[in-house]
Write a protein that binds this DNA or RNA. Structure first.
Length: 752
DNA sequence: CTTCCTTTGAAGGGT
DNA sequence: ACCCTTCAAAGGAAG
């Protein structure tokens, strides 16, 4: 519900786009009220409302005291709940932790977060073993947790000293030089210094300290502006702007948007690129990214984002509410700062749009590796190609976009198609798995297509995930559910089913077996992953026997390993993880359904299988929000691939694959087996043992599987699922009555 | 050097 | 009203 589909058309008038508030209004507000004593969130909200109203009335300059909250920003006010006296970024690397102290506590931020019990002094979470530096209270004003001392490109995890440097440089413009921090609001905009206090964390991180030390920072640093001043490139530092801060620009941003802007608006240099205010999730991401990076050793943002997305869903409603609140404030502030600004302004960068479209049309290079090396040599494919990200997307584009002119697209399409029929087959299956299937399929597939399209996500994979994602239907905050199968624990299953079914039902030209196989092998998310090429030929996906067999099997095994590792990894919640003090939603048996948090829903899937049957199977287990389900195979494959631990698994999986084929079984068997063991709250344990276990299981299955794969699969899935997930399976099966193998696999997948 | 990837949410435009 | 698209952050990877 966070994103209840309440259209904000009017949002413009109503700055407060109360969407979030509305969202949580029912439950969230109540909860907030409950906890209001703690964090005064309610007050804030109300104050915000007032603020908003008053603001709407037109006084942008006069806002100082509107928000008690902001007033609370007063550095020395430990009680402050929403403001960020401390750098919002717990990590020296600049990852924001916009969480208010109280929030931080709730969210389980590491103790050091509140290190001296003085929020102000809170050192940047030297998460990862880096001892929090001691702040000199005297220096408080000056000192600020190393906010952005590092180059954006760096995630200097062990960032420690930065503080010192930062402190030293605090007053110097250079502070922001390399910072990822955004540019300040243009001074042109009349900003009341008091306003500084009003800045929500995103705006304020650097600003907060400013309350004491330098209000001037405030004036200059609105992150939203990627100012014309930004890079030297444009060379046009806005004269009006304080020169000291022009460099605040995020290097990346500056490079990207900026350059564009500069070129485009070379004429009007002064037009700074005003960025969109960050939404709740973005704020969350910004804050948690570093943490995730540290935990997972991932660096690839895409993968990290996937994890973050899961965590976001796993996040308690309250916590989310806070972020929504922050986001709302930020929007408000942004509105105030730039009354004339509209997203369309930035949207003017239609170029990007065109580019994307072009990409869809012509992404020749998408299959480059494929075309070049062929299926046989997948190991030589580039990583994306292996993941089939683009390929998938491409296919989706083809299918989704009305097959792109079939004939017309012949250039690219034709070439590609011609290039790799094999690939296409694969992709087709992928597509099929994704639900779009062939054009032939697609045509009839209104539903499917709609699904795909509705899924804004570019890739099939993402599509699935997004599909899974409550956001499309429900949000985390929302009681999810909404699904076909409330009971279905597995997003994947759901998504898969949803996508798949239409094809199957519509009697697509393709044999159902294919679609199933695709789903099975790929197991959904797997669209990307498993899209193993061979599936096209195989009657049953499971049968690794057909086709590219060894290499494919090998790769598939790897994929499985990766994915599986991912279960342990990305999702794994490090014990020490700051994500939440409260039992990790992801890995805890479902706390209390009573709590009725959406987040709770998140784990159901996992808990469902992972949690010992003893747990009363929530009858109506809502569908897991995207990523909420740790076992969601759909989740970031890339994550696994990027992870260290993954390597181990890969090795295992590889070995296994060498042993031969049947990787397809992997997912199912593995997952199911894992489940029986029950979920170990200690994810470390889970991880470590998990890989071994995984390997063993996989081996076993490989050995045994040769015979009765389908049988085993179905058996496993059902046996395992019988507890909570059974419900999930049935639909799948029901949907895919056709092939036992498919169903079994699907079921297996659904487990995840 | 630019774009992609990936996530969710907000917002605007189009139908 | 609904759907679709773009953009916001981030940083590695690929083109």
């Amino acid at each position: 519900m966070p994103h209840t589909h309440t259209r904000h058309g009017s949002s413009g008038d109503d700055l407060c786009s109360t969407d979030e508030v509305k969202i949580f209004k029912d439950e969230g507000d109540r909860e907030d009220e409950k906890i209001s004593s703690e964090n005064l969130l309610v007050e804030e909200k109300s104050s915000l409302i007032d603020l908003t109203e008053s603001e709407e009335k037109g006084n942008k300059t006069v806002r100082p005291d509107h928000s008690p909250v902001f007033n609370k920003l007063e550095p020395h006010t430990p009680s402050f709940n929403m403001g960020y006296l401390v750098s919002p970024y717990p990590y020296g690397n600049g990852a924001p932790s916009g969480l208010p102290v109280t929030m931080a506590n709730k969210m389980g931020l590491p103790p050091f977060f509140c290190h001296n019990a003085d929020p102000l002094t809170t050192p940047p979470p030297a998460h990862c073993g880096i001892p929090p530096y001691q702040l000199d209270p005297k220096a408080m004003g000056l000192t600020r947790p190393a906010l952005y001392p590092f180059a954006a490109g760096q995630y200097p995890y062990p960032m420690l000293s930065p503080d010192m440097t930062q402190v030293a440089s605090w007053h110097t413009p250079s502070v922001y030089t390399a910072s990822s921090f955004r540019t300040p609001y243009p001074t042109s905009i009349p900003i009341n210094t008091t306003l500084s206090s009003d800045f929500p964390f995103r705006f304020s991180p650097s600003l907060l300290p400013s309350v004491h030390a330098a209000s001037h920072h405030v004036l200059n640093s609105h992150p939203a502006i990627v100012g014309a001043s930004s890079k030297q490139d444009c060379g046009s530092q806005d004269p009006t702007t304080n020169n000291r801060y022009p460099r605040n620009l995020d290097s990346k941003n500056s490079s990207n948007t900026q350059s564009i802007d500069c070129k485009d608006s070379s004429n009007d240099k002064k037009k700074p690129h005003i960025k969109k205010p960050l939404n709740a999730f973005m704020l969350y991401m910004k804050e948690m990214r570093a943490k995730v990076v540290a935990e997972c050793t991932l660096k690839e943002s895409a993968a990290i984002n996937q994890i973050l997305g899961r965590r976001w869903h796993a996040l308690g409603r309250e916590e989310q509410a806070k972020y929504y609140e922050l986001a709302r404030r930020e929007r408000q502030l942004h509105m105030q700062m730039y009354p004339d600004w509209s997203s369309r302004t930035n949207a003017s960068r239609g170029k990007k749009r065109k580019r994307k479209q072009d990409a869809h049309d012509g992404g020749n290079n998408m299959k480059k590796c494929r075309a070049r090396f062929g299926l046989d040599q997948q190991n030589q494919w580039c990583k994306p190609c292996r993941r089939k990200k683009k390929c998938i997307r491409y296919m989706e584009a083809m299918n989704g976009t009305g097959a792109i002119e079939d004939g017309s697209g012949i250039d690219d399409l034709g070439s590609q198609l011609s290039d790799d029929d094999d690939d296409d087959d694969d992709d087709d299956q992928l597509v099929g798995s994704c639900g779009s299937g062939d054009e032939s399929n697609k045509i009839p597939d209104d539903d499917t297509e709609s699904l795909n399209q509705s899924i804004s996500s570019p890739g099939c994979l993402s599509g699935l995930s997004s599909l899974q994602s409550p956001s499309t239907t429900t949000s985390l905050a929302s009681p999810l559910n909404m699904n076909i199968n409330p009971a279905t624990p597995s997003l994947l299953a759901v998504s898969t089913n949803a996508l798949m079914v239409p094809n199957a039902e519509q009697g697509s030209s393709q044999p159902r077996s294919e679609s199933i196989s695709a789903s099975g092998s790929s197991s959904g998310s797997t669209c990307s992953i498993s899209t193993t090429p061979n599936t096209s030929n195989t009657v049953s996906p499971v049968t690794g026997t057909t086709g590219p067999s060894s290499s494919l099997a090998h790769e598939r095994a790897m994929m499985l390993g990766n994915r599986f590792s991912h279960l342990g990894m990305g999702l794994s919640h490090p014990i020490g993880s700051s994500v939440s003090n409260k039992p990790d939603a992801l890995f805890q048996p479902h706390p209390s359904v009573s709590k009725n948090k959406s987040s709770a829903n998140g784990f159901n899937g996992f808990s469902g299988s992972g949690v010992p049957p003893k747990a009363p199977a929530p009858v109506n287990v809502p569908r897991n929000p995207i990523g909420a389900n740790p076992r969601d195979i759909n989740n970031p494959l890339s994550i696994n691939q990027l992870t260290k631990r993954r390597e181990d698994l890969n090795v295992c999986s590889i070995a296994v694959s060498d042993s031969k084929e049947k990787s397809a079984l992997g997912p199912t068997s593995i997952i199911h087996h894992a489940a029986p063991h029950g979920y170990h709250p200690h994810h470390s344990l889970f991880n470590s043992s998990f890989s071994q276990h995984f390997h063993q299981q996989l081996t076993h299955h490989l050995a045994a599987a040769s015979n009765s794969e389908s049988t085993i699969l179905s058996g496993d899935s059902h046996s395992i699922n019988n507890g909570k997930h059974t419900s999930s399976d049935p639909p799948t099966n029901a949907n895919n009555p056709s092939s036992s193998a498919g169903s079994s696999e699907t079921g297996a997948i659904s487990v995840s």
